[in-house]
Design a protein around this nucleic acid. Structure first.
Length: 482
RNA sequence: GGCCCCAUCGUCUAGAGGUUAGGACACGGCUCUUUCAAGGCCGCGGCACGGGUUCGAGUCCCGUUGGGGCCGCCA
């Protein structure tokens, strides 16, 4: 047993927003990678930005992860509670001459940057702080002069071996001596990341493509820290349908928005897993176990992917169609104003409507028809299906329904067809208005199943209410003098 | 602007030098049917462009174009 061989990965969100589908996909790949290799998945909260980090956002991220099924093995660790570690690391780097103090103010640097931009040059920090004599640096620091700590970047190019992209070379002059610790003592992102990845013995860094250009900084830092360099895997970005980086602008970029829209976590998980990874073959609906078993970084693509809500909806419908009715019902929360039909009815209604709903929200809406009478009738449907004779025909049907010895789909259908025949009209001329009367809409599950499920009392009540309403309308609306 | 990444149907993708370039979503048609779905069947639709390498390039190399990312005392 070689314990060191088990990979350790991490997801490191920053609580400056809710969990994004892009971040969720990153977390998901880390999780799948860890499970596949029997490794460890660590969660680390990067909350060193005191201005922007918010505690309630951390809670939100945690709950979104739990909902999606992104279980971590260690953590959550909070960077805000690990300042001693960063402080010690910074002191060590300073002591070894791998980092140095720089005393320029933010204003001075801003002016330099502006000047460089105006001249059309790429801005890089001059490195002036490097030339300070150690004694002078110590003296000024001891005197309380404000300063940052910067890393001495090596003068040679840095190569990164990426598991997805192969080797990527960065020229030496692409990077300047970046800031590790702010003048107020706060450690900065890149520094914390490397100190923590080292401390947490992270072996594989799987993250978004947007960090690829930061990676040489991290490599230089790991080297300065004398730490092993983890393997990197940079994932293509997730884009909106306009091919721009997915953001709030696109709507529903946050995991919880999809939860609220009635998407099943299993469906989102499956969908996200396939955004950049393909197990090979033509399979698309995969169980969690299959994904864990087959996930491999060498089958992850390097190119960015567009997030297509239509396909997510389709996949969700697939999960809705396959889930046991009991479970589906449990997961479907009725709208508060509707109340819920009794369980046996609801269960049957779920069976009737599951293939007609792409989301839990749509399913809940369909179920509400069994709990309360329609509040209104689709106007176009009334216009199309209600003829002058319709109220009378419906009343005749209602009487027929009253006398039925048994209330079943077959019996009610037979009754309706007989009534239609007696009226010398096609069955459809009755079926459509009845659907409208019972459900308020023109589309839905097979009518006689609905009729049976509603029960005689409810069906008759709705039928007669409808007759009254349309008859009243005909009286008031049929007297236009032109 | 500098540096870096990416490039197969509208979208997600399979393809690891020789394929009629496959599947899925979406779209169109047919079927089933009291409606709407679901399902089944059929169809539309793609290797960004230009050079190489090779007997042979979607696949390898270079360039162009296009898209994206990074260049903070943000993460």
């Amino acid at each position: 047993m070689n314990d060191a061989a088990a990979p350790r990965v991490r997801f490191a969100p920053s609580p400056t927003g809710s969990l994004h589908v892009g971040g969720a996909r990153t977390a998901l790949y880390n999780l799948l990678f860890a499970r596949h290799a029997k490794g460890i998945f660590v969660l680390r909260i990067e909350d060193t930005d005191v201005e922007r980090s918010r505690e309630e956002l951390t809670a939100q991220i945690l709950s979104a992860m739990e909902w999606l099924g992104l279980e971590y093995d260690e953590g959550p660790f909070y960077q805000s509670k690990r300042y001693d570690l960063y402080r010690a690391a910074a002191d060590g780097l300073l002591r070894e001459g791998k980092a140095y103090r720089a005393f320029e103010t933010a204003e001075e640097l801003g002016a330099e940057r502006k000047a460089a931009e105006a001249a059309g040059r790429a801005y890089r920090y001059s490195g002036a702080g490097r030339d300070l004599l150690p004694e002078e640096s110590d003296r000024r620091a001891a005197a309380g002069e404000r300063h940052v700590v910067r890393l001495k970047m090596p003068a040679e190019p840095i190569g990164v071996d990426d598991l997805i992209r192969g080797r990527v070379e960065f020229p030496a002059d692409a990077l300047d001596d970046f800031v590790l610790v702010r003048s107020d003592g706060h450690p900065l992102y890149h520094f914390c990341v490397c100190v923590d990845d080292t401390d947490m013995r992270i072996t594989h860094v799987i993250r978004g493509d947007d960090h690829l250009a930061n990676t040489p900084k991290h490599v230089a830092l790991f080297r300065a820290l004398g730490a092993p360099i983890p393997k990197f895997a940079h994932l293509g970005m997730i884009l909106g349908t306009d091919r721009k980086k997915l953001s709030k602008r696109h709507g529903a970029a946050a995991v919880e928005e999809w939860r609220d829209a009635g998407i099943l976590p299993e469906a989102l998980f499956n969908f996200l897993a396939l955004l950049g990874w393909a197990p090979g073959g033509d399979r698309e609906i995969l169980s969690r176990e299959e994904m864990e078993r087959e996930f491999a970084l060498d089958r992850v693509g390097a190119s960015p992917s567009v997030f297509d809500p239509e396909k997510l909806l389709w996949m969700n419908a697939q999960y809705i169609a396959r889930m046991p009715a009991e479970e589906l019902l449990e997961r479907t929360v009725p709208r508060a104003s509707d109340g819920a039909p009794e369980r046996a009815v609801a269960l049957r209604a779920v069976e009737l409507h599951r293939t007609r709903a792409r989301t839990l929200v749509e399913l809940a809406r369909a179920l509400s028809a069994y709990a309360r009478d329609p509040a209104e009738y689709e106007p176009d449907g009334v216009k199309k299906h209600v003829k002058p004779d319709t109220p009378r025909q419906l009343e005749r049907l209602a009487k027929r329904f009253e006398d039925l010895p048994e209330w079943t789909a077959a019996a009610t259908e037979a009754a309706l067809r007989e009534t239609a025949e007696a009226e010398q009209i096609s069955a459809g001329k009755l079926i459509h208005p009845v659907r409208l009367a019972l459900t308020g809409v023109t589309v839905g599950a097979p009518l006689f199943d609905v009729v049976e499920l509603l029960g005689r009392e409810t069906a008759l009540r709705r039928l007669r209410t409808f007759v009254e309403v349309v008859a009243a309308r005909a009286r008031t609306g049929a007297a236009p003098t032109a």
